[in-house]
Design a protein around this nucleic acid. Structure first.
Lengths: 345, 345
DNA sequence: CCTAACGATTTGATCGTTCAAATCTACGCT
DNA sequence: AGCGTAGATTTGAACGATCAAATCGTTAGG
């Protein structure tokens, strides 16, 4: 049975102490760890056995000081706003943390208000904390943050496309249009010909993208879309009000595609108050596959957040592996979301 | 006179470079920063002006290597489970991050499954990452984590009482009983004499505590509690089912106190499906004041999460300021929650 | 036989800071 | 003058790792 790490002196083993014990030099131990191919086989085994025996683990602070690499990833947290959809970012954060751990990295959190504040944080995190890279979320039109980071040659990826500009950096995103296209198509396949879209006001990137998928599916199937599109803020009450209006039409929709679960659930409350049963009387599909959707049986388009997080880290590894800030960014990753069908469809 | 205008572009200023420029030694600059009282007034000013001029900021990695203090706080993240109540921990995490930043610290995230896994993470975070302290959430009966940390003299606080044992460590918690007591009393004041409690199964610490407040308020007002108490898992569906049962009683409750918003909302769905209007036909009070509660107009008991986070950091500062692990922990902090009355009461 | 080349290993310097101890200066006191 | 002392400042040595260059031992080539 392999020996468990022996706590010899309560004093933490260092490269030096391991070296003495294995009767080699510091650097050989270091090589055994970081560049094993430079070490002769028998020496390697001897060193490794001592390392295992004393339970040596390199001190990351010391390493960071020398290499200027901290193995730290900075990620922002936001004040909770959206009661339903907020969980998306939380899930992403959790996935990112897990993935980072797998790659022997860690996530350093920071809180920021506006973009300017966030940029100030970047500066501090880079300069003082030696953070290797950043993951940005919530990219928007005219994003000042990416420009700032690019100028300084900082490594970063965004979860979200660089809306409206050419990408000078790596990014990962979910193909929202593909998601709503699939959702809408599924409704059409089930015979619906009057399909409404509960969306956000134009100009939001994400919202426009998701609406596009709905429109394309309808166009291809020659389903009319006039008068059955709403554009409201991402709030339960707003969703409910918009839904109410659509249901009052002379020819009300038989199905709804929603830009987000938050709006879908707003619609849901309106339906139940009208004694309309979701799924039987009116079909509904949301977006984001929040836990709430799962609980109430709402069909929804699920973002592959785990994969998105993994992709972000893969891109970062790619960027970080290059010595100097590369002029051309890595290929962006666009992930396909998955339609989760439940009782509401 | 000052030396020639050194164009130290692009290269980060260090103690050494600042020292040269101010014509003093490294250590004097260090003292100017960390122990100004050791430096003569005029020297201090000279040094400070150079620091400001070149924008010097100490390198935290180097400092950490020497002082064995990283200014880092490790906090766990959990996979999102509770769609409604999960936001509580998120809010707490955000508050913690903000507070930590104010105190020139940062939050390092880690993901863990079970307690054993979490303990393995502690080890790594302490030994390899030099993390100064931990904040634990979700304390439970027979918690293995606190014992492990205490044994090793690690600095930590828990957000949540050490249920069932004597505290060997600092903790911050919210007085759940006080919250449900206040909620129940408010219902009694409004004339309710048949008040149900939607709670969790016994043995959960938090759940028992909150139930206790309800029981005390009823006892003091001679309101009966037999047959109107449920104990179910923290899920919407479970809450709804339990509520349904209670509403079917010969003499159904006119008011509900719920151990969590999740159950309250489960009850809510049952009410609306029975055409009972919350607030008018049946009074409801939840717990946690989640955004969902705010949206639908559900009265709820709000935890002061911002203050809780601040209190956690205050306790940690206290613990960390002592040279050696103190035998007696700092005074625990028990915060009073706040009853937020809305339409449902 | 000499030397070049290569693989394996060691040595010295360095990252930027703080700790611990040494030095220097000025001043008051006998 | 000599001495002790406190305050201000400097010096050398860590902290624990990696980088860059030097060294050593072997082997192959001419």
């Amino acid at each position: 049975m392999a020996g468990r790490p022996v706590s010899n002196n309560s004093i933490r083993p260092t490269l030096e102490s391991v070296a003495r014990m294995a009767e080699v030099s510091r650097q050989t131990v270091s090589n055994a760890l970081n560049a094993p191919h430079l070490v002769r086989q028998d020496t390697l085994e001897r060193v490794r056995s001592v390392i295992a025996q004393v339970g040596y683990r390199p001190h990351r602070g010391a390493r960071a000081l020398r290499t200027r690499r901290s193995q730290l990833l900075a990620v922002p947290v936001f004040p909770p706003v959206d009661p339903i959809g907020g969980v998306v970012l939380d899930t992403f954060l959790h996935a990112l943390t897990t993935e980072a751990q797998r790659l022997d990295n860690r996530v350093l959190l920071f809180a920021a208000g506006d973009d300017g504040d966030e940029i100030r944080q970047y500066d501090e995190l880079r300069e003082d904390h030696n953070v290797d890279a950043f993951v940005l979320t919530g990219t928007h039109v005219g994003d000042a943050r990416t420009a700032w980071l690019s100028e300084r040659g900082a490594a970063f990826v965004t979860f979200g496309r660089p809306w409206g500009t050419v990408a000078h950096h790596g990014w990962v995103d979910v193909d929202g249009a593909a998601g709503t296209y699939e959702a809408t198509s599924a409704l059409i396949d089930r015979g619906h010909r009057r399909i409404a879209f509960l969306g956000w006001p134009a100009g939001s990137g994400v919202g426009d993208d998701r609406r596009e998928g709905y429109l394309r599916a309808c166009r291809e199937a020659s389903v009319a879309t006039d008068g059955v599109q709403s554009a409201v803020l991402n709030e339960l009450a707003a969703g409910r009000a918009a839904a109410s209006e659509l249901l009052d039409l002379a020819e009300p929709p038989t199905a709804f595609v929603c830009v987000a679960d938050t709006l879908a659930i707003g619609l849901w409350t309106e339906l139940t108050s009208r004694h309309l049963r979701p799924g039987q009387d009116v079909a509904v599909v949301g977006f984001d596959d929040t836990p709430t959707a799962a609980v109430i049986g709402l069909s929804s388009v699920a973002q592959p957040l785990q994969e998105a997080a993994a992709a972000c880290l893969a891109l970062l590894q790619q960027v970080l592996s290059q010595r100097e800030p590369s002029p051309l960014p890595p290929d962006p990753v666009l992930l396909r979301p998955r339609l989760v069908l439940r009782d509401s469809t």
